[in-house]
Write a protein that binds this DNA or RNA. Sequence first.
DNA 1: TAGGCCATCTGGTCCT
DNA 2: AGGACCAGATGGCCTA
Length: 328
Amino acid sequence: MLQKVNQGEKRGVTQRIKAGVDVRGSIKSYSCVKVTVSQKLTEICNMGSEVEYEINVDTLEDTEANDSGISDVDLSTDYCNTSCDQTPPSKSRVPEDIRLRINSRERDRMHNLNGALDSLRQVLPHSRGPSVKKLSKLSTLLMARNYIVTLTKSLEELKNIVGDLSCKSQPIQSLEALSRLSGEPRESRTPSRPGVIPKSRYSPYSVKSPRCQERPTLPVSCLTTSLSVNVNTSLGVNLGNSVPFADKTNVRGLQKTDDKPKINFSMESLLKKTCSKEDNKLESSAYHGHLSNGGPIPLPTYSSVHPSPFFYSHSATYPNQPVGMTYI
DNA sequence: TAGGCCATCTGGTCCT
DNA sequence: AGGACCAGATGGCCTA
């Protein structure tokens, strides 16, 4: 096998090659020396045992074996049809310049793909920071999927909560209603004169609507302008108070922290959306969700001994657990 | 040192 | 024909 290949230095570097079963495939990317090397290594294969050779890639293409450091190999021999011919030398049908262009495009394509994955990692909580190991591609996709599922469930619960809190038949028109319910001082759009009772039968300022009187008393905590929901608690997904959208049984090495991610939703937007829509449904754009503990994406403090807060790949640590994460 | 993860090359296939 | 996409192969790097 090719023991050492520096992809960035394909030429001008003496590559150390240990000839094994199939060496040709290992160096087929060296298009400029491909055929010559294949012929040489065919002979090496025929020698049976492993042999180490120093091959100067820079000179292989134009020189004889003696110049390239290969000795005891008959370079005049055509490609053999014996034990090594099951993997014929990869002589590309594509011209080299075309091949290089295709390779470049493929590299760019993969770079774009990786860039998209990086941008996905950026919006995943607990995925950034100096002490956090970069998520693998697979983990990124699985975490993103679970994160979406968790957020969706949280949103459904919030809708239910808000639906219970709000007037079932008469929508709460604004935060003024909220402030009224919470006992906060209100501001009248049409200032009433002293001693004048508002005409409105259901004036929110003095007389409650019969329907609204049936509304259950709101706890004080719900009457703030934002509503915090502990995702861990509400979804029954408790991962040591760390990662709410990861599957506990499939995340390795998860470190317990005091970090309790919460998702804040603007009560105002929730109420407006909830009460103004007949179907009582929230659109995804109707809320502004973010983790409450330190900005949009918090950076929890994980043990420096375990830089990866999500899982370990070492199977011996958790021999009965699959690698990575699965769906929740 | 083995295994996981990754970048790169490459040929094949499909689409425009 | 050329580009995009995909999957296989291969070797390097890192970590437990």
